[in-house]
Design a protein around this nucleic acid. Sequence first.
RNA 1: UGGGGUAUAGCCAAACGGUAAGGCAACGGACUCUGACUCCGUCAUCUCUUGGUUCGAAUCCAGGUACCCCAGCCA
Length: 556
Amino acid sequence: MSTESAPIANNFLRSIIEEDLKNGKHSTIITRFPPEPNGYLHIGHAKSICLNFGLAKDFGGRCHLRFDDTNPAKEELEYIESIKESVAWLGFEWGEHLYYASDYFEQLYQWAEHLIKSGKAYVEDLTAEEIRAHRGTLTEPGKESPWRNRPVDENLDLFRRMREGEFPDGSKVLRARIDMASPNMNLRDPVLYRILHATHPHVGDKWRIYPMYDFAHGQSDAIEGITHSICTLEFEGHKPLYEWFLDNLPVPSRPRQYEFARLNLTYTVMSKRKLHELVSSKTVSGWDDPRMPTLMGIRRRGYTPDAVRTFCERIGVGRSDSWIDMSILEECVREDLNEHAPRVLAVLRPIKVVIDNYPEGLVEEFEAANHPQKPEMGSRKVSFSRELFIEEDDFMEQPPKGFFRMTPGIEVRLRYAYIVRCTGVVRDVNGNLLEVHCEYDPASRGGSAADGRKIKGTIHWVSAGHSVDAEVRLFDRLFGDPNPDRGGADYKQFLNPDSVEILPAAKVEAGLAGADIETRYQFERLGYFRPDPVDSSDGKPVFNRIVTLKDTWSKK
RNA sequence: UGGGGUAUAGCCAAACGGUAAGGCAACGGACUCUGACUCCGUCAUCUCUUGGUUCGAAUCCAGGUACCCCAGCCA
């Protein structure tokens, strides 16, 4: 975990907590991250995780991980495991505070009976369609159900029989008896329980009725003693209901809900439905495709937890809808990796270079720094010989103005090795470039000219006989448009056709043959890469490009 | 045309009646054996808008405008 102490930006949640602590409303704070295990976590969840766990940590409180598992029709064990893994990967610990809303089902059930007994809930016989028709619209009040004034005893009897499994799915629901004319739709007698003959991923076949989110969330918070229940903006309209339950039930504590704006990121999509579509249509290779905004994808790509946390810190938190530019996320990884990634030489699109005046058969070894700014990271030896590979982009026969890489007649430095001058090229009958020929300056051993002359360009290389083959996967943004989600149009039309490019014949320095799967490298002058954790092997290394280096040259 | 929210630079975001922080981006320059990194400098007379209160307003008041959320037995 990074120890840099960047000043913590103030935000409205911190202000509220500071105030609550100062005036004694709370002596400690307890937050919670409450995912529904119905899918994999994405970068938007990371914002919530960092907020909840981060706030708790900063103020000396704690944060619970609680699965909001009230809908067995959509939830799976696999998601529970994956979510735990992702939260842990991000660097947060819930310790013993792992909870499931489903563990509170008995208590919730008792509270439902409590509402029935106090005349504040009733069993509804209307169908889903009828309920909808009775609900009214945004501008018209709803109509009361004919079952709204059922006697308490009958409600109790029916509700108990619902629990016993006497009725089929959808035949009845339990509703709160609040106000069918409320301007807040959430208060028009919301459904509390529905009948679902389904096996639950956590509690199995214990229940035939399941509470709705609204009836479970606030009470779960109260049971756990949550002080600050932080959720996204769309739940704001639910707050009056959240509080209605706390007011009308003998709950053990009084949590308070606060809302913040969810994360929107440019050049990607975040909705579960669309992410699902990308996977099922095979547009991407899976939930962990390195282009996906899922935490699994980001992780496989090579992003570090530190970078993601920095990102969440940097974007701040507010209550206005906002779109964060993808470049901020990218900059966060660069910052982290620039600091920690060992440097290495790799050639993605090799072209052959022959140094005509270099002795045939001679092999020299040069000392290359693992991190030029950090001598403590040590160095390694790289082999040099008469035949090398350099980057296709680093050679031009007729360069534009300002090009200071390899070009006929001009000296260029081969990083850590020698200064060379291109003397010509060899082409095949079709005009394809076969080889670039050079002459080297023997007095520039190590890369510095004996006479101190300045060499403008330095390029990376790899010895033909001392490098290993590798596959390199270049990832780019999944969408070509900053807002693929934007209204109306089909987001798929904005898919970036070049979001992945496979380079099957890259050459990397020999030391990378058995590269550690968890090590992120900087391929000098190219970007940051890491071995793909699923496809890479010692025999055939596969590298994922995490992010490019900034490139002020290609921009011009 | 119901209710609930939100408007500060290209993108985020501070400010709590006392004279517009910070980050990212951008632009200029220095340095450089990575066109990277690092470093220096520039970047809102102004806070959606129109009025009002005040010695003083992004902050308070009144009226507009724009955008977001709510009519699942989803969360």
